[in-house]
């Protein structure tokens, strides 16, 4: 159990920490307003469950090749079911608890972690899902393939965001940071895709109606 893209304190410079904190705070503020406008009764328990599942599943690192592991981010799954702003709020709550109580992800790096795994992963996951299901149709098969691509892409792009932050913080040159981070996370993303598809298949089999909620 570690960090995957949970950045500890000490990696990023002050300019990067401050910028990502500001963007993430703005994102959370806007997300709260969106949720207040659109939240229906059915969203309430699903938001809690989604957050609880993401927290629990993030503890379960799965091995990939080369003595490396990865774990679920979960933002794409949350965004597919509840919409990108709801996913940002869920991810922010999970990351705040992980940082404050479990010392996973730095307190100063919280803004960067919310930016990467909340904002970037939620929005790329959501729009990749919308784009792929538009191409393949909203059949069961189209939704499952779309969710795999969305989940994989969300991890890949979140890792690229983290690589750029390491670069601008002067930790690594970009030509090193980018292939290293994107390379491992291209593999970790396969795990993200498989878990996301598995959960959505369970939802489709048991509570189809939860697939049709208004997205926030």
């Amino acid at each position: 159990m570690g960090s995957q893209v949970h950045i500890p304190d000490g990696f990023l410079n002050i300019a990067t920490l401050a910028t990502t904190y500001a963007v993430s705070a703005g994102g959370i503020g806007f997300g709260l307003r969106q949720a207040r406008k659109k939240l229906a009764e059915k969203h309430v328990p699903l938001m809690g469950i989604m957050a609880a599942f993401i927290f629990a599943a993030q503890m379960l690192n799965f091995p990939i090749v080369g003595g490396t592991s990865g774990h679920l981010i979960g933002a794409a799954l949350a965004a597919i079911l509840l919409g990108p702003w709801a996913a940002v709020l869920i991810m922010a709550c999970v990351l705040i608890i992980q940082s404050l109580i479990f010392q996973d992800g730095g307190l100063l790096a919280l803004g960067a972690n919310v930016f990467n795994m909340g904002i970037i992963a939620s929005f790329t996951g959501y729009y990749l899902y919308r784009f792929t299901t538009r191409l393949m149709g909203m059949s069961r098969r189209g939704k499952l393939i779309g969710s795999f691509i969305a989940a994989w892409g969300s991890v890949f792009l979140a890792s690229i965001a983290a690589a750029i932050e390491l670069w601008v913080s002067g930790i690594l040159p970009i030509q090193v940071a980018l292939p290293a981070m994107a390379g491992w996370h291209a593999l970790i993303g396969i795990g993200e895709g498989l878990i996301t598809v598995g959960v959505l298949r369970l939802v489709m089999a048991t509570r189809r109606d939860l697939m049709e909620l208004e997205r926030i």
Binding site: M1, G2, S3, Q4, V5, H6, I7, F11, M59, L60, N61, F62, P63, G66, G67, T68, S69, G70, H71, S159, A162, A177, A180, M181, W184, H185, I188
Partner: peptide, 13 residues
């Protein structure tokens, strides 16, 4: 049961 191997960012670090 989680894998104790370093994760993506730890491995790069």
């Amino acid at each position: 049961l989680a894998s104790a191997s370093p994760d993506g960012l730890e491995k790069v670090a």
